[in-house]
Amino acid sequence: MRPRPLAGLVIAVTGGARGIGRETAAHLARAGARVAIGDRDAEGARATAAELSGEVTGFGLDVTDTASFVTFLADAERRLGPIDVLVNNAGVMWVGGFADEPESATARQLEVNLHGVIRGVKLTAPGMLARGRGHIVTIASAASKLSPPGESTYAATKHGVYGYLSGVRAELRGSGVRLSVIMPGVVDTELAAGTATGAARLLSPADVARAVVAVIERPRFEVTIPRYIGPSTRWLNVLPQPIRDALYRAMVPDQVRSTAGGSARQAYESRNLTGTDTPGAER
């Protein structure tokens, strides 16, 4: 299959002010796409858009608010044209023992990571269906398949994203609208500050951005980074439970242990999850 050219495509990226979203927007713009980035930090989104080369425009966007999402999409379409691709990237993560997780952090992860994706799909897919084409790419996590200690709620949201997209994909079969879910391991962003990588290497935002470009060029549903995570999880799941548990302990990081007593996550979590600091970008 020939790669689909990105030149001229209108692509919207949520959580685009920094981290994975910023790097994804940069890669897409360099490939010739017309990019709209939305972020809870509206000034940050506009500043990022001004700094990147190519055609990039920044807007305010709160993925937990339907009116905000509708406005973002409408403004992006007025400026750039109908949206060909939505990249659901915005996400938040609280790390620690399940019993210590503040209720506000639990609610925030569910609303941003899961409901934000559902909202994005429901708001963009109808227009794509009417045109008979479109692509929704969601940045999930290897936690869609695994559940590291210390990330129980985060993993639950990512399992939910995978399940939701699987069902919607079945409904959209034959419509011309494609879905993709990208599941990276630990990425070197503020969201993952202070966490461990386990057996896998630490990824860069550029690793994820390249995967987004590649999956738009050649659509497929599941993408894991590193690639071996997908086959490994399928293979592990056929093993007896005691052997599976031992291998998971060897491969998957214990994030309760890795973050115990540290302060590396304090600023991020207070800003994005517990409401004790100035709001900022999510991923």
Rank of each mutant, 00 (worst) to 15 (best):
residue 69 F to D: 07
residue 22 R to D: 05
residue 9 L to Y: 04
residue 118 I to R: 04
residue 274 T to G: 00
residue 164 Y to A: 09
residue 109 Q to A: 07
residue 37 I to D: 10
residue 233 T to N: 12
residue 47 A to P: 11
residue 132 G to I: 12
residue 268 Y to D: 09
residue 274 T to Q: 00
residue 126 P to V: 14
residue 70 V to M: 11
residue 121 V to K: 02
residue 277 D to V: 05
residue 208 V to F: 04
residue 190 E to V: 13
residue 132 G to N: 12
residue 108 R to P: 13
residue 273 L to D: 00
residue 18 R to F: 06
residue 213 V to F: 07
residue 247 L to W: 11
residue 104 S to H: 09
residue 207 D to P: 07
residue 173 R to Y: 08
residue 225 I to C: 10
residue 61 L to K: 06
residue 39 D to A: 03
residue 255 Q to W: 06
residue 276 T to D: 12
residue 120 G to A: 00
residue 204 S to M: 14
residue 239 L to G: 03
residue 110 L to P: 07
residue 253 P to L: 11
residue 155 A to P: 09
residue 68 S to V: 14
residue 192 A to K: 04
residue 217 E to C: 08
residue 255 Q to D: 06
residue 105 A to G: 01
residue 146 L to R: 01
residue 20 I to M: 01
residue 49 A to E: 06
residue 163 G to T: 08
residue 38 G to K: 05
residue 5 P to E: 07
residue 60 G to F: 01
residue 48 T to S: 13
residue 111 E to M: 12
residue 20 I to E: 00
residue 271 R to C: 13
residue 83 I to E: 00
residue 110 L to V: 13
residue 63 V to M: 06
residue 205 P to H: 03
residue 36 A to V: 06
residue 235 W to K: 15
residue 80 L to N: 11
residue 151 E to F: 10
residue 193 A to E: 01
residue 7 A to M: 11
residue 217 E to N: 08
residue 44 G to H: 05
residue 109 Q to H: 05
residue 121 V to E: 02
residue 22 R to V: 09
residue 43 E to A: 15
residue 18 R to N: 12
residue 245 D to E: 15
residue 118 I to C: 02
residue 271 R to S: 14
residue 145 K to Y: 15
residue 159 H to F: 13
residue 17 A to K: 07
residue 3 P to L: 01
residue 150 G to R: 07
residue 128 M to D: 11
residue 216 I to M: 13
residue 252 V to H: 01
residue 8 G to D: 08
residue 112 V to C: 08
residue 150 G to I: 06
residue 275 G to D: 03
residue 32 G to N: 09
residue 140 A to C: 15
residue 230 G to E: 09
residue 114 L to Y: 13
residue 131 R to W: 10
residue 29 A to P: 02
residue 157 T to L: 11
residue 127 G to Y: 03
residue 220 R to N: 12
residue 204 S to L: 14
residue 67 A to I: 05
residue 208 V to A: 10
residue 240 P to G: 05
residue 124 T to I: 14
residue 82 P to V: 01
residue 152 S to P: 13
residue 100 D to M: 11
residue 141 S to N: 06
residue 199 A to P: 01
residue 202 L to F: 06
residue 134 G to A: 10
residue 24 T to Y: 01
residue 223 V to A: 07
residue 134 G to P: 11
residue 256 V to L: 04
residue 58 G to Y: 07
residue 131 R to S: 10
residue 115 H to F: 14
residue 272 N to E: 11
residue 19 G to Y: 00
residue 112 V to Q: 04
residue 24 T to H: 01
residue 251 M to W: 10
residue 131 R to P: 14
residue 111 E to N: 15
residue 227 R to V: 12
residue 253 P to E: 12
residue 42 A to W: 01
residue 223 V to K: 05
residue 15 G to V: 02
residue 181 V to P: 09
residue 100 D to V: 09
residue 166 S to Y: 04
residue 15 G to N: 03
residue 144 S to I: 06
residue 194 G to V: 06
residue 155 A to Y: 04
residue 156 A to Y: 08
residue 210 R to N: 09
residue 208 V to P: 11
residue 117 V to N: 01
residue 30 R to C: 07
residue 194 G to K: 10
residue 270 S to F: 10
